[in-house]
Design a protein around this nucleic acid. Structure first.
Length: 603
RNA sequence: GGGCAUGUAGCUCAGUUGGAUAGAGCAUCAGAUUCCGGUUCUGAGAGUCGGGGGUUCGAGUCCCUCCAUGCUCGCCA
């Protein structure tokens, strides 16, 4: 109903300006038009939309809200185009105007939607918005080389992928960048440790298992924390790497390649597509960052390190907090890389990505870091006019004890183990149900359903939560067939597929749509909200809003299914209800697709 | 100590530029089935929106203050 909403918005704006021409002229002169505050109705009994503006305007217009509302509705009642869309408006409460869209208008919308693969979601208008045609960078997932992916990478990967999908669907050119940790001190540690414990790993591929590599990494970290001499050699190794020393570089490449293959297995399982562009990519641009900051007089040498002092962010001592761009020993650290990345991403091709919006999906713990880095980028004038740079933070994954999710023995949980467990539990659950219902299915079916439901449950549980707060992980809750879960949504789709199997032609003709049941109308109204939700999520970057919508749609569909017969209905109702089923399935499928969640016909 | 975030029903959480009587799910209790997959649906109870002040026609939402929790604060990322 996005188009309808926009059209109503214009009519109401006109009505308001006709009703109060002087105030409108004055408002225009000051550059800010009178706002009628048209929004979706807060409750179904208020209709489809409501106008809240009359209350706000009471003071500047020096009239009571109801008088203002009356003046607006009088204008609307004289507007035939408006009356073609809505029933005559009603004033309610202290001065709200309630609008109800006409049935024939809703039906026309449904008919359009049935023929529209995009379900009413517009492609971004690149003629209207010059920025629209340029690129959006979504920086997400970003595991570290020589480590295994763990639950900490889960949220970034799932949320980032969904955001990227939604932006792509809206027609943006999206760069999905995997900013892997393949550079820096950690590599110095690992390589210098391997030199003593497993030198062959530095010259030959795959001589050690990734699991062992992870262990070596942990040992190296421990050594680094305890041994000052080792710290020095590690740092020297980093410098060698950053200067392109061929031996070190070769060792580094071997390790990266091994990790990369491991990550890819996880991404394949999650159906997530990423372009790897690790921290190392920006190595050639680091010097330029220093020069640029120096040229804009932001760089200060303090304690031998090159820093930028942040504005409005103080450290423990109360002095402005420095961000270290180049360390005493000449090495660069992650702030330098992030700054180089910002520059590169905003720069136009061929020296950059030509992006107009940068989105970073990382945990909330990095909020300070990004605030600092973004501030420097702004002060250095690297952000073009109209350019946006956003940190999309998310909270911790916690166990049901409210603490950071760990294994029973207190270790971090590997992502592959977590996915395995979700699928195993899903399979056990499926087998139990098959037994109870005396159904027999072959192993391929069981495996397919178990893995689809398992992955869907993990993803949906994560996405359905407002990302900013911490999130309590529970297999039992996410795999439950009741409540706001992936299985519940999948079940609605399975029911529709069941109708089709039992002889319902979902592609039946839809020229003469006619409805009479309340459940049909509430389904219709819910279906037509899809486009608004997608556009909102694109702006707010909150996929949980899409989840809430899809859950509500499933609930309303189940109510409809429960109370209104489809296959047994007489024509023309049968065909019309089949059309609603088809549109519900299309909407759920597209919505789930935008979340990156697979769907099923039977389960 | 400074900064940031969070605090809503027994539990897990929604709540869109400030809008009408604060909403879901789970759990609990009570109901519904000749039926397209009951893995469903209907209903009920349950709240000082952390406390207190303020802004205004109106505050869960904005401002101030206090409390609690989490994250973070110079050479890791």
């Amino acid at each position: 109903m996005l188009i309808l909403f926009n059209s109503l918005s214009i009519h109401i704006q006109n009505a308001l300006e006709k009703a109060f021409p002087e105030a409108a002229a004055q408002a225009h002169a000051s550059g800010k038009a009178l706002d009628p505050q048209l929004v979706p109705a807060s409750k179904p009994e208020f209709g489809d939309f409501q106008v809240n503006g009359a209350l706000k305007l009471a003071k500047p217009l020096k009239q009571s809200p109801r008088i203002i509302a009356l003046a607006i509705t009088d204008q609307l009642k004289a507007d035939q185009d408006f009356l073609n869309i809505c029933n005559p408006p009603e004033i309610a409460g202290p001065g709200f105007i309630n609008l109800k869209v006409k049935a024939e208008c809703l039906i026309a919308e449904i008919r359009n939607q049935l023929q529209d693969k995009r379900l009413g979601v517009p492609v971004i208008d690149s003629s209207n918005d010059q920025m629209a045609s340029s690129t959006v960078v979504v920086d997400f997932s970003s595991p570290n080389i020589a480590k295994e992916m763990h639950v900490g990478h889960l949220r970034s990967t799932i949320i980032g992928d969904s955001i990227a999908r939604i932006l792509e669907f809206r027609g943006h050119k999206v760069l999905r960048l995997n900013h892997v940790g393949d550079w820096g001190t950690q590599f110095g540690m690992l390589i210098s440790h391997l030199k003593t414990v497993a030198p062959e790993a530095l010259i030959t591929a795959d001589v050690i298992e990734l699991g062992d590599l992870v262990n070596f990494y942990k040992q190296a970290k421990q050594r680094f924390d305890e041994d000052i001499h080792f710290q020095t050699t590690s740092r020297e190794e980093v410098i060698k790497l950053q200067n392109g020393d061929s031996k070190t570089l070769k060792a580094w490449k071997l390790i990266c390649e091994q990790s990369r293959r491991e990550f890819q297995q996880i991404y394949n399982r999650l159906d997530v597509r990423l372009s790897e562009r690790g921290e190392s990519f920006y190595n050639p641009f680091l010097e330029q960052v220093i020069d640029d900051l120096n040229d804009s007089n932001l760089l200060v040498i303090d304690d031998g390190a090159k820093c930028v002092f942040l504005q409005g962010i103080n450290g423990k001592d109360g002095r402005p907090l420095p961000m270290i761009i180049q360390k005493q020993d000449g090495g660069f650290n992650y702030a330098t890389t992030d700054l180089a990345a910002i520059k590169y991403r905003f720069n136009t091709s061929p020296e950059g990505d030509g992006a107009h919006r940068l989105i970073y999906v990382t945990d909330a713990g990095q909020a300070n870091h990004f605030a600092g880095v973004f501030q420097i980028a702004k002060r250095a004038n690297w952000i073009p006019d109209g350019g946006r740079i956003e940190h999309v933070p998310f909270g911790l994954v916690q166990g049901s004890d409210g603490k950071k999710l760990k294994t029973r023995s207190g270790k971090t949980i590997r992502l592959r183990d977590l996915l395995d467990e979700a699928i195993d539990r899903s399979e056990a659950d499926l087998r139990r149900r098959l037994k109870e219902e005396d159904r027999t299915e072959n192993d391929d079916f069981i495996k397919h359903v178990a893995s689809t439901v398992g992955i869907a449950a993990v993803k949906y549980a994560d996405l359905s939560q407002n990302r900013i707060t911490n999130y309590q992980f529970s297999f039992d809750r996410m795999l439950s067939l009741q409540g706001n879960t992936a299985p519940y949504l999948l079940y609605a789709l399975v029911r529709i597929a069941g109708i089709a199997r039992k002889g319902g032609d979902l592609d039946t003709a839809t020229d003469n749509l006619i409805f009479k049941e309340g459940q049909e109308w509430s389904l219709i109204r819910t279906l037509l909200k899809f486009d608004e939700v997608v556009v909102e999520v694109e702006e707010e970057l909150l996929p949980n809003r899409l989840c809430t919508y899809l859950f509500e749609l499933s609930q309303i569909f189940n109510r409809f299914y429960d109370q209104v017969p489809v296959l047994k209905a007489n024509e023309p109702y049968r065909s019309c209800r089949l059309a609603l089923c088809r549109l519900t399935a299309n909407t759920l499928n597209l919505g789930m697709n935008l979340l990156g969640i697979p769907t099923l016909e039977r389960m």
